[in-house]
Simulated assay, not measured.
Amino acid sequence: MDKRVLLVGGGKSFMVTSIAKELTENGFEVIRAEADVTAIERIENRPSVYLVYVDDIDEMLDFFVYLKDKSVEDDISISIIGSSDEIEKINKKISKDYFAAVFERPVNVKELARQMIGVVEQEEVRLQKKRILVVDDDGTMLRTIKSWLSEKYQVFMSNSGMNAITFLAKNKVDLILLDYEMPVTTGPKVLEMLRSEPATSSIPVMFLTVKSDKESVMQVLSLKPEKYLLKTMPPAELLANIDEFFEQQKIKNYG
Rank of each mutant, 00 (worst) to 15 (best):
129 K>M: 10
141 M>S: 13
126 R>L: 10
98 Y>R: 14
90 I>W: 01
90 I>E: 03
87 I>Y: 04
97 D>G: 01
113 A>S: 15
143 R>P: 00
126 R>H: 14
83 S>V: 00
72 V>Q: 09
121 E>P: 00
97 D>N: 12
88 E>Y: 12
153 Y>C: 04
77 S>Y: 04
71 S>F: 00
135 V>I: 15
143 R>N: 13
155 V>Q: 03
150 S>D: 08
137 D>I: 02
111 E>R: 11
112 L>F: 11
86 E>C: 02
135 V>D: 07
120 V>C: 12
158 S>D: 06
75 D>V: 00
82 G>T: 05
137 D>F: 02
132 I>K: 06
128 Q>A: 05
138 D>N: 15
101 A>R: 15
149 L>A: 05
145 I>S: 03
135 V>N: 04
105 R>P: 00
133 L>T: 03
85 D>S: 13
86 E>K: 01
107 V>Q: 06
97 D>V: 03
73 E>T: 12
127 L>S: 13
110 K>I: 09
89 K>C: 08
132 I>A: 03
110 K>S: 14
71 S>M: 11
150 S>M: 11
108 N>C: 09
125 V>H: 11
88 E>H: 11
134 V>T: 08
116 M>H: 08
155 V>T: 01
99 F>V: 09
129 K>S: 04
114 R>V: 05
76 I>F: 04
84 S>Y: 05
115 Q>G: 00
115 Q>M: 14
144 T>K: 09
125 V>I: 14
119 V>T: 11
143 R>L: 15
140 T>G: 11
134 V>K: 02
100 A>C: 01
87 I>F: 04
99 F>L: 09
90 I>K: 02
119 V>W: 08
137 D>K: 04
87 I>A: 06
112 L>R: 07
97 D>T: 06
98 Y>C: 09
124 E>P: 00
123 E>V: 02
89 K>T: 02
93 K>A: 11
127 L>Y: 01
144 T>N: 05
133 L>V: 06
154 Q>Y: 07
148 W>D: 01
132 I>Y: 10
107 V>F: 03
138 D>G: 00
97 D>S: 13
121 E>S: 09
